[in-house]
């Protein structure tokens, strides 16, 4: 079956792409000036030699590369330089789900919010609700994420003060209440973008002939709205969700930093500051591979769901 052959070909391409990402990461990492084995207390040459041997840094570069790629092929990212007895695999396993949770929630909020607000603004075109929502949309698109995140946190403190009960936690992770504001902040930009998209798409659909026909035929308004207008207007929104996922997963950096969320993004930023080679390389390759295969999955799903999409 062609779908299977297509999937197989994409998968092979994906593997080659991941190899490319891994190589690029390796080269970029080894071009970084500095030394991951430095600590604020200087060490003797003997201790240094031992440390280098432990992390394989005493090998020539091409040997290091071969070891790195063969370890990678076995799914082994090595041991962290800062957390000296923790494997990078453990770090990813423990922190990626947090980022993923936040990302999924943000995407869902953005997608649903975008559709609802977009439909609403189209309905009230050029009237007060439209103007008000579009103003907020413009704000959400043009204010930098870290400012929104900081304001979000201040808003929680204010809310808790005014009500006198701890409604929402200021930072941290673990329960439902911890997720709400960070996910909202993270999804806000995408939601604003989708709202605009939904609005114009909705306006376009409402003006089409088939809607006019449906009304002329006397189909109930409710049915026209859900079966004809909404369903067709949502299509372009769905097509941009794919790229938005990639944006939101990495956009989580800021939110994770501000709200002290133990996600992989925050970990990455800390690893960069500590020059933790293995964690930086592991995280980058993992994220790259994740995105590559997400794109393949999304493409395949489109092919299955929408017969008009031709599998190249």
């Amino acid at each position: 079956m062609t779908l299977w052959r297509y999937a197989l070909r994409r998968l092979l391409q994906g593997i080659v792409t991941v190899w490319f990402i891994a190589t690029a990461t390796f080269l970029a990492m080894h071009a970084v000036p500095g030394d991951p084995l430095m600590s604020d207390k200087a060490v003797t040459p003997e201790i240094r030699a031992n440390l280098e041997a432990k992390y394989g840094l005493d090998q020539p570069l091409h040997r290091q590369y071969l070891i790195y790629i063969s370890n990678l092929a076995r799914g082994d990212f090595g041991i962290s330089f800062t957390q000296k007895n923790r494997e990078v695999n453990d770090i990813i396993r423990e922190h990626f789900p947090v980022s993923a949770t936040l990302g999924i929630l943000a995407i869902v909020i953005a997608g649903m919010g975008g559709v609802v607000w977009g439909a609403l603004t189209a309905l009230y075109r050029n009237r007060l609700p439209d103007t008000a929502i579009m103003f907020l949309v413009i704000l959400a698109i043009s204010v930098p994420g870290f400012v929104i995140a900081a304001l979000g946190q201040l808003a929680i403190v204010g809310l808790n003060r005014v009500t006198g009960i701890p409604l929402l936690p200021v930072a941290g992770w673990g329960s439902v209440s911890h997720m709400l504001i960070p996910a909202l902040v993270l999804g806000l930009g995408t939601m604003a973008y989708l709202t605009r998209l939904m609005r114009s798409s909705m306006l376009e659909v409402i003006a089409t002939d088939y809607i006019r026909t449906a009304r002329a035929k006397g189909i109930p308004a409710t049915r026209i709205f859900t079966h004809h207008a909404l369903r067709n207007a949502v299509l372009p929104v769905i097509t941009v969700l794919g790229p938005a996922i990639a944006g939101i997963t990495t956009g989580g950096f800021v939110v994770e930093l501000v709200f002290a969320i133990p996600g992989l993004g925050r970990y990455f930023v800390q690893a960069v500051q500590q020059l933790d080679y293995t964690v930086i390389m592991g995280t980058t390759v993992f994220y790259g591979a994740f995105l590559v295969f997400m794109v393949i999955v999304v493409d395949l799903l489109y092919g299955i769901v929408d017969p008009r999409v031709r599998l190249e």
């Binding site: 792409t17 991941v18 490319f20 990402i21 690029a24 990461t25 970029a28 990492m29 071009a31 970084v32 500095g34 990639a246 990495t250 956009g251 950096f253 990455f268 930023v269 960069v272 020059l275 930086i280 995280t283 980058t284 994220y287 790259g288 995105l291 590559v292």
Partner: peptide, 17 residues
């Protein structure tokens, strides 16, 4: 290939490199 590189991560990586 280049599109597949995670943007912000590589941005940071290149910056320090």
């Amino acid at each position: 290939f280049v599109v597949a590189l995670p943007f912000l991560l590589f941005m940071i990586l290149f910056k320090i490199a």
